[in-house]
Amino acid sequence: MNKTEALVSVNHVSKSFGKQQVLKDIHLEIKPGEIFGLLGPSGAGKTTLVKQLVGLDLPTSGENYLFQEKMPSLKLIERVGYMAQSDALYGELSARENLQFFASLYGLNGKKQGERIEQVMQIVNLSNHLNKLVSNYSGGMKRRLSLAIALLHEPQLLILDEPTVGIDPVLRKSIWAAFYELKKKGVTIIVTTHVMDEAEKCDRLGLIRDGSLIAVGTPEDLKASTNAATIEDAFLVYGGA
C-alpha cells in the first residue's frame, strides 16, 4: 500500500513500561473511509496503541502518523474524535452541560453548538435525557453520551475504545448503523473491541495478542485463509492454538 494514501500509519511501533513490553513492533496502515477494528483480549495492548494515536502517549520506538503528519501534534488533535475506555464525564453536570463544555473546547459555540448537540444526542438515542444529571445515568447511557461527545465536532477520524460495552443489542445495532452513516460521509473509524461478533461488522480487522499484531485483513479474508467459520476460530489459528 502506498504510504501517502494511508490516513493512519503505525510505523514499527514498540512500547515498554519499564521491563514490560506492551507493544511489539506494530506496523499498520489504515485507509481513509474504512471502519478498522482492533480485536484482541483485554491486556493485549489495544488501549496503549489507541492512546498513542490520539497523542496521549509516545512510542518507545517507531512513529505514528495521522493525516501523513507525525503524532503527537496539537493541530491533528482537533481532527480526531476520541472516546476513551472509561467514561470521562462530569457526574455533577447534566448531559447538556457536559456536551456544551466539550463543544466549547473544540471551538463549537452558539447556534451551531445547539444544533450539533441535538444531532449527536439523536444518533445515540438520548434526546429525552439531555437535562438529566450524568450521575443519574446508567452505564450504557454514559457510554452513549461519551460517544456523542466524540462525534460533536464532526471529526474526520474517530477513535473509539470499546464503544459498545454495556449497550443492549438493539441500541448496538443502531449505533453501528450510525457508524456506517458516518463512513458514507467519508469519516474513518477505528474501533477496539474484544467482542468477536462485533468484529464481523468492520471493514478490516487487526488481531492483537500480547502486544503483537498477529493478522490484518477483512473478516472474510481472515476466515477464508484459516478455513475458520468464525472470527473467533480464525483468532485461535493465528494465535497459535
Partner: peptide
C-alpha cells in the same frame, strides 16, 4: 482518576 483529565488532553485544550 476518572479519566476526564486525559479526555481534556485529547482535546485541543492547551
Amino acid at each position: 482518576t476518572t479519566g476526564t483529565l486525559e479526555r481534556l488532553l485529547s482535546s485541543p485544550l492547551r
